[in-house]
Each structure stands twice: as structure tokens, then as C-alpha cells.
Amino acid sequence: MPLRMKINGEARELELDTRTTLLDALREHLQLTGTKKGCDHGQCGACTVIVNGERINSCLSLAVQHEGDEITTIEGLGTPGDLHPMQAAFVKHDGYQCGYCTPGQICSAVSVLKEIRNGVPSHVTDDLAGDIGLSNIELRERMSGNICRCGAYSNIAEAMTEVAEA
């Protein structure tokens, strides 16, 4: 089935099996392997990408659901020579170890700060009508769909706090 998407600002055309997930379209067909497959079942968050401005688990949607969508992957945020501020903060605070969950963590982290700015409440938000503060627990609650088995959570929270306060 033919499919057109805008990926990291670039128009891409693909011919895909209807069973192909957005994750496999990125990794196997477009060779954008920065987005990781950890579980393929929406349980780990390693496949997090930003679709039309919102983060999703790319393993949980079929590519053909994304006709015309704008997709930002980790490769679209920055490059080794030109890091996004969140990527630079992860390096500075050692917000990773093995690195496999890292692209998903970073895509989520960038989105979480935006969600808080936009007033989207979470499970731990006390006042649904007021401003949502950038508390440690507010960040952690929202990041909890991204598992890091190496256990870099404390450092990721620090990296996010630094970017949020910059």
C-alpha cells in the first residue's frame, strides 16, 4: 500500500505491507534506526516518536494510519555535531548508560516539557485548572512510560530540569 509521510521535515513515499508498524517503517524501510524496538508491544517506550507534535509509541500504530502525518524522530532533533539542547543535557548529566532507550527517553522528554507548558495535566497534577509546575514528580510521572533498565532515571530528571529551566 502506498503511503506518504513527512519525516524530519522531508517528504517520504513508501510502498508498505499493511501489517508494517510505524516503528518498522522507520527502522527497516527508511533505515532510521535511531528509534528503537524494545518490546514491540507498547510496554517500554523505546520506540517513542513525535507525530504531529505529540509523542506516541510507534510500535503501537500501523504505518498506514499515518498518511500525511508529520513525524519527528530522534534523528530529526539533532545530530552528533549539532545536538538538540535535550540531547546535550543527556550527555552532560549522563542520562543514559547502554543508550538503547535513550532516543525514546529524549523524544518523550522534549514532549513532556511541552505538555507541561501547554497545561496538559497528569496523574500527579493537584490543581487541574492552575499552572502546572515543573516538579520532580511531575516529570517522573510523565516519563514513566519510558523504561530505562540501566536505571538512569535520576540523571534524566536532572537533564530535563536543566533544559526546562534554561
Binding site: G34, T35, T73, L77, P80, Q87, F90, V91, G99, P103
Partner: peptide, 8 residues
């Protein structure tokens, strides 16, 4: 680090 945080 720069490779890991950029997915490269």
C-alpha cells in the same frame, strides 16, 4: 554520548 543521544 553524541552517537547514543542522536540514535546514530
Amino acid at each position: 554520548g553524541p552517537l547514543k543521544v542522536t540514535g546514530t
